[in-house]
Amino acid sequence: METVQKWRSLSSCNRCIRIDSSKGEKPDLFLDSVSVPFFAFSIMQWGDEGMQETLQGTIHVDSLTFQFQGNGENVLTDISLSLRAGEWVSIVGHNGSGKSTLAKFLNGLLIPVTGDVTILGMNTKDFNNQPLIRKKVSMVFQNPDNQLVAPTVADDVAFGLENAGVPFKEMQARVRNTIHTLGLSGLENSEPSRLSGGQKQRVALAGALVLQPEILILDEATSMLDPIGKKEVMDQVQRLRRETELTIVMITHDLNEALMSDRVIVLKEGRIVGDGPPLEVLSHSEMLADTNLIHPFIIEIMEGLKGKGYDLREVNNTIITEQELVDAIWKLKQMM
């Protein structure tokens, strides 16, 4: 069994880093030993300037191990990772793989006992850092019903600003702008319980973005939505990736969603078993099968064709949409 630990950049992805791939022979041994060197490795590659940026601009997790009280099992085991500024990272894994728990460490909702989490240069163990971390890292949760606090949309979007003590005039302008950007204009005075699932999650997203965070964490934010709602939220995430410098961490088990991001981290039973560009990580059949995940549809087709002797990656090695897949098949045929 192989475990993916690749870091090769896509030619189209200018924000990804270029690191040689490495492979472990035995998964367990490999997992235990790789995390720390890997962490050091990536910093080394970025050089001085990059390192500066990383220390201020991202999240570092260093040898994080965690278990819930009164339960001997590790929820997370020896997790180490670094997120770069402006990166869109998907953390995927089966139900119960620890991905949502990990998410709660990434904004200081949980504080490590073993290991460290540093957010924008601030260690989460230092309680004095909490207020600033709250301002810089925003989070959207899974259940739309359980995160909207206020009786109306506008009040809810304003909630974080109220907590931060933002003056009324500024608050008013920011709430109005954010509501407008997320396409919620006209719903300002609606009660959350009368909105659709997609609308509720967009309100939650607005409440997160209005704080002008540097990092946005989406904890399975689409998993309870219907296809229309999912698309509403994903369209917003893609827009944010295009138009802002926001670092986006997306927890999901929808690998078709993960495919759109810049980097995928795969968790299995609380350990990182894969980390790298989506196309590579999500092409790795054995690792996915081993982690209760399934190829995204596009990759499934490409792998199937490859099995029959048609490697579409020779035509285009950055296929992630249906359109690109169709174009590549058609191009391949014309080349034959």
Binding site: K135, N146, Q147, A158, N163, M171
Partner: peptide, 27 residues
Amino acid sequence: LKRAEELAVAMEARGYVGGEGRTKYRQ
């Protein structure tokens, strides 16, 4: 109870620490 717990976490994530130093959106 589950709702209450999730809501509490969400409120904490959104920086709620009680009435002290809070401004009000509703005027």
